[in-house]
Amino acid sequence: MKLLTANRLSDGEAVWYADGQWVETIAEALIAHDKGSQEALESIGNQALADNLVVDVNLIDIEIVDGSIHPIRLRERIRAAGPTIRNDLGKQARIQQAA
């Protein structure tokens, strides 16, 4: 399973591709389950790069753990949450604030 991720051009915010838009939380991302949908995501990423919406576009590996998206690589888990040493920064801070 894969997701399409990038950083937004204007502010560098880590974003993931959902259905038709780039979202700021990984939980909303569109999951590609097969090769065909992965290729579709790849071309969406290339187009978004060409359209100057995002930079550093990547397809990343994930699995589903307890019903939630769990990136395989620690690097992607940190991008999805924020620095592990500062819970008040990054996406995790918003979740705390919301709670």
Partner: peptide, 14 residues
């Protein structure tokens, strides 16, 4: 151009 001016892209932001 951005690198010449000290701007990198990292995991969460520039």
């Amino acid at each position: 151009l951005r690198l010449m001016n000290g701007v990198y892209l990292q995991l969460h932001a520039y």
